[in-house]
Computed example of a mutant assay.
Amino acid sequence: MLAQIFIGFILAIILGAIFGPKIEVVQPLGDLFLRLIKFIVVPLVLASLITGITSLNNIKKLLSVGGKTITYFMGTTFMAVVIGLLVGFGISPGKGLDITLPTESAEKTEIPSVIDTILNIIPVNPFESLSTGNILQIIFIAIAIGLAITAVGEKAKPLANFFDALALVMYKITGVIMKLAPIGIFGILAPIVGNYGLDILLPLVKVILAVAIACAIQLLVTYSIAVRTLGKMSPLVFLKGIAPAGLFAFTTASSSATLPLSIKNTEENLGVSKEISSFVLPFGSTINMDGAAIYQGIAVIFIAQFFNIELTIMQLITVMFMTVLVSIGAAGVPGAGLIMLTMVLQSVNLPLEGIALVAAIDRILDMFRTSINVIGDASAAVVVQESENKKNLKKAA
């Protein structure tokens, strides 16, 4: 599949560059594939997460796996924003830039308060959450049902079996849909390449380069060290195993759309158990935003340099901690990347007008950060799996 996806990826770039906007004729292929992915995401997340919780057998084990997962996500997100800031200072994407600030500022998005963010996790109508695809609320529903099934015990076994069977059915449908991935990727990426001209990219090429370099460092250093030391897995085995999902995420710029392939890759290629992957990956696809953290760090440096503002040490520390906190707080909100950047800029009193500077290339940057988010989720699954394996061996001994 990796070879097929890569061929579709390369063809999309070549033909998009040759035919320009005319290549939009193939866009229905991408739209069809994305609709098929969206068709399976909600039942897959619900069924797989409930199955993952019930397969852990007890609440104590759930808390153990959940605690390790959240701790890992917080740690890698912190590393991501530090890398973003360092690369931003090293490349200095905002210095000497001659761009006329757009007369229309970036679209204003209402920033929810911390209390509202917490309350919005709890659905008023579970069926509305399922129909609208609110992943954060669906995760809450799945956790509540999974915990209740575990607490009830034997009498709830038929319901547990139902969700287990539903998860297996969704995996089967996913396998069929994924055979269309190379064609779908071609249909998604070719129109993007055809419509983005060098006139937009060249002035901001240093920003794109900075994000690409920082993402590569996060991948080759942070995740590689984590899977080697904590996950006891060769980084090469890990990267090869998760490569199809990473490439798919890069093309679609959607963690949710990539989730079925991520689950397939981590279980089949990386040896992660179903109970771990079905909990960590749906959870991570919503709250883990390492790629977005990298983007925040670089965007803050870029905007500060563009407006000739010197950032203090305290402001940089604030950026680091705010990025880690809002990565979870902005989860489930449409345009989470923009929400996060707005909140971080406000925390250090940088001009919000700077958001408009990166708006033109946000779709391209989103491809990099989504790919890193997805690979980070997989690395968490590998690390948590190894930790649970050690725990089980100690109990057996």
Rank of each mutant, 00 (worst) to 15 (best):
E310Y: 13
Q315A: 14
S277F: 09
G175I: 06
I91V: 15
S371G: 08
K179N: 11
T342H: 06
I7K: 05
N349G: 09
L166K: 04
A378N: 08
V176M: 11
L85N: 02
I242M: 12
M367I: 00
V152R: 05
I208G: 03
L247Q: 01
E388C: 03
I149E: 01
S48E: 03
V169T: 08
M289Q: 02
V358T: 10
A181L: 15
P123N: 14
F302N: 09
K395S: 08
D98Q: 09
S48K: 05
L236D: 11
L393A: 12
L204Y: 04
T318V: 10
Y223L: 14
A3C: 13
I115E: 13
L159E: 05
T117S: 15
I91N: 06
T252Y: 04
A80R: 00
L352F: 10
I183R: 03
F162H: 13
F302C: 12
G52R: 01
Y72P: 01
A245H: 04
I217A: 09
T77F: 04
L311R: 03
S129E: 07
V227D: 01
F162C: 09
I5D: 05
E104F: 15
I10E: 10
P191F: 02
A156C: 07
A47Q: 06
S277M: 12
I143T: 00
Q4S: 05
M343Q: 11
T71V: 11
I301K: 04
T69I: 02
M170E: 00
K274M: 14
K38W: 15
K206V: 02
P93R: 04
F163I: 02
T117G: 15
G96Y: 13
T370G: 01
E275M: 07
P28R: 08
N58S: 13
L159N: 02
G75C: 12
S255P: 09
A165I: 14
D377C: 08
